[in-house]
Amino acid sequence: MDKASLNQADQGQWELAGRLDFASVVEIWPQLQGLVAEGGALTLSLAGVSQTNSAGLVLLLEAYDVASRSGCNLRITELPAAMLDLARLSRCEGFIAEVA
């Protein structure tokens, strides 16, 4: 199983990797929530995400929501094609345009 992880790459730069599903986003969320709640600037790369579904999209939407409220400038990079398709399907293109 391709376990999900959230690791720091550099100052203000983090990498989300592995499979984002219903079970793994629950494990990842407290760490991601803590990061965006701190404020400042945060770049989150999704280059290492191997598989995702609506749970992964919801994780990002929640992170964006907390970031907006805490004054965090969240930028998400390397969005997987499946995530982009899902965002379009869910009519969340506006959100993607905001953070990507």
Binding site: F22, N53, A55, A81, L89
Partner: peptide, 14 residues
């Protein structure tokens, strides 16, 4: 019930 959807509208139901 836990539900997730993927980009091909496959729904996983648990």
């Amino acid at each position: 019930v836990a539900l997730t959807v993927d980009e091909k509208m496959r729904v996983e139901v648990d």
